[in-house]
Design a protein around this nucleic acid. Structure first.
Length: 281
DNA sequence: AACGCTGCCTGTGGGC
DNA sequence: TGCCCACAGGCAGCGT
């Protein structure tokens, strides 16, 4: 499940491969992946546009084209492949999970694959990309220059629900998904079900710092490979070796040796150490 | 305003 | 063995 570090790794890879490519035509095999505009317009508008840049905002990829921006979210299992099919090889690379193909004038193809078809794409006019509903309400990027402690504290004091669920809200800070939420809470010794507004000042400070450092470290390591994630080169990340609680249920906590437990919080599988992360109040 | 629920999807694996 | 169903989970949209 790509979270910010994985999306950033995909972005880096794509930007090394596809800049300057001109789109000749587009094939869409599953219409629901295209959120807007309508599929025929989506295909038509992309023809002839050149890929000038690939950026990222939160977990969204932004392909900057001649006139438009293609906003793409991988959701759970979305992937991009960039390849040059040759005779005979074309069939071998056929994959029933390929749902969108961008045919380049060069002969290369940018393919979007998605086993669960949860991913979404929108094409918007350049300059209006941040007005799009998916990007308009996003919070700050998790870097010190943008993500400030005080606004985060204001946000937390308005929330009574479990802190785990609040971290998954892309309005407080972007990029955290289920894996990093658990890892961040373990590092700050906060119980995932702790009500957000009950955190102490020190806990808020630690949490703020951990969000920045955990995500930065994961970006540095090329993301986490659990199940199916690989970057645009088909490579795995390395952060899975650093995970302390996610997927570790039943094994010993690295800090205290207590068995890591798995519960459900905010409707999601949640991993924590019952000794290091104690529910208070 | 904040929160929780549902729909979107398919593959995997545990239980019987 | 083979079948069934819970589960995996990010986000939009909706009702309360």
């Amino acid at each position: 499940m790509p979270e910010l570090p994985e999306v950033e790794s995909v972005r880096e890879g794509l930007s090394q491969m596809i800049l300057g490519e001109k789109i000749a035509s587009v094939e869409v095999g599953w219409d629901n992946i295209i959120e807007s505009p309508a599929v025929p317009i989506f295909k038509k508008r992309l023809e002839g546009q050149v890929i000038e840049d690939v950026k990222r905002r939160g977990k969204f990829l932004l392909f900057y084209l001649t006139k438009d921006v293609l906003i793409s979210h991988l959701r759970m299992e979305g992937k991009y492949q960039f390849l040059l099919p040759s005779y005979g090889e074309e069939d071998a690379t056929e994959n029933k999970h390929t749902h969108v193909i961008f045919y380049m004038e060069s002969g290369y193809q940018l393919r979007y694959l998605d086993v669960r078809k949860f991913g979404r794409m929108s094409l918007v006019e350049k300059g209006k990309e941040f007005d799009h509903k998916s990007l308009a309400k996003l919070g700050p990027e998790p870097i010190a220059e943008e993500f400030k402690l005080e606004p985060m504290r204001q946000f937390l004091t308005r929330r009574t629900k479990a802190i785990k669920g609040v971290l998954l809200d892309q309005e407080i800070v972007v990029g955290i998904g289920n894996i990093y939420a658990d890892e961040i809470l373990f590092r700050t010794k906060i119980h995932p079900e702790q009500s957000a507004k009950t955190l102490t000042e020190q806990e808020e400070k630690n949490l703020h710092e951990s969000i920045i450092t955990v995500l930065a470290e994961a970006v540095e390591k090329g993301g986490t490979t659990i199940r199916s994630y690989e970057n645009a080169f088909g490579e795995n990340g390395n952060y899975q070796d650093e995970l302390k609680v996610y997927g570790k249920e039943g094994s010993a906590c690295a800090q205290c040796g207590t068995k890591i437990e798995k519960i459900k919080v905010a409707g999601r599988g949640t991993h924590y150490c019952p000794n290091c992360q104690v529910l208070k109040g």
